[in-house]
């Protein structure tokens, strides 16, 4: 028990040393920016990477994923995993548009969709926390169910909103250039950061993920804490789906394909541990920005038609190498002990 307590303490301490934790993904971002600066010095490869429009573009394309990543981060820190967020995103986009097209007022439709996200999170939480089933497979199955439901509702076609006001929610620009989508993203980021850092719930989430048994004997209601993280994740996934539907003014059942694994990978690349107990909102943001920046940089370079495939390959290599380094570091520490 004593070593466990020590283990928990050291994990919590290491989670607060964010600067060190950020290094790999953060250095990779600096490298990408540096490489793009060099490319911009060469006339043949000059591009718009450093323009204000592209900056907004990167933020906008990262926003939806970032909203999803915040919920996923909380679940991962508590030692769970939620792979249903891709299906959830597609399904909630479809639901919000179908509700509005059926005559439900916009705020009510959005509220109902978010509530549904929480409800799906509650089902995930009930089966994987209270019934102790493997969350990886339960949420994978839930993602399949939600994708199937979205396909059935839309006949696997894309559905558009008939209300012109709906797309204003994400796309209206305030202060002349910041879309509301980005503001929502920043708000979700700030709330998650505050929740993990400054609330007792946040501390409990780290404790539960760090060592479940120790947290239990310390008097934390471990089940309720862990279950709450799935509810939060369902909520952010539904919010992401609503914002995506608003941004595109349409929704489709294929929207969430590969999203869950992409987001989990980005969060892990940022430095949140899949073993639980380590991580944070800022880390996940860095990880996600790295993957977003890479995609954007490749699109800007437009070397030839193969570039999009090449960027996928590079994305895979970056994910593998960062996680490889993490595993290797753990192995070295294991052997040192």
């Amino acid at each position: 028990m004593n070593t466990r307590q020590l283990n928990l303490n050291s994990r919590i301490r290491s989670s607060s040393r964010t600067v060190l934790g950020l290094q790999k993904a953060f250095l990779a971002i600096l490298l990408v920016v540096l490489a793009m600066a060099v490319f911009n010095l060469i006339p043949e490869t000059r591009n718009n990477f450093f323009s204000e429009a592209n900056f907004i573009n990167i933020l906008k394309s990262a926003s939806i994923f970032l909203i999803l990543a915040m919920g996923e981060t909380v679940v991962l820190i508590a030692g769970g995993v939620d792979l249903s967020i891709g299906g959830m995103m597609a399904f909630s986009g479809v639901v919000v548009i179908l509700l509005m097209n059926a005559g439900v007022p916009i705020p009510v439709a959005i509220a109902l969709t978010l509530l549904m996200g929480v409800a799906v999170g509650a089902v995930n939480a009930f089966i994987s926390v209270y019934q102790r089933a493997e969350p990886f497979i339960i949420t994978l199955g839930m993602g399949i169910v939600l994708t199937g439901a979205a396909q059935q509702l839309t006949n696997a076609r894309s559905v558009s909103s008939t209300l012109p006001d709906f797309q204003l929610i994400a796309n209206t620009q305030i202060l002349g250039w910041v879309p509301i989508l980005v503001v929502v993203m920043l708000a979700v980021l700030a709330v998650t950061y505050w929740m993990l850092r400054s609330t007792s719930f946040g501390r409990n989430v780290y404790a539960v993920g760090g060592d479940y048994e120790v947290a239990k004997y310390s008097g934390i209601n471990v089940r309720r804490t862990k279950a709450a993280t799935y509810l939060i994740c369902g909520l952010t996934a539904a919010l992401g789906g609503v914002m995506l539907a608003s941004q595109l003014n349409s929704a489709s059942s294929i929207a969430g394909e590969n999203t869950a694994l992409y987001v989990v990978c980005a969060v892990v690349v940022g430095g949140t541990s899949v073993a639980g107990g380590v991580g944070g909102a800022i880390k996940s943001t860095i990880g996600l920005l790295l993957l977003g920046l890479l995609t954007n940089a490749f699109n800007q370079l437009r070397i030839d038609s193969l570039v999009s495939y090449l960027s996928t390959a590079l994305l895979g290599i970056i994910i593998v190498s960062i996680l490889w380094l993490d595993s290797y570091g753990r192995k070295r520490r294991r052997e040192a002990v």
Partner: peptide, 24 residues
């Protein structure tokens, strides 16, 4: 080579490799 021993580590490494194989 990375010394990965957990399911999660193998999951992410093979997911990254699936992107690579698919792109190739």
């Amino acid at each position: 080579a990375s010394g990965a021993l957990t399911q999660a580590e193998s999951l992410f490494i093979t997911f990254g490799m699936s992107l690579v194989y698919g792109a190739v």
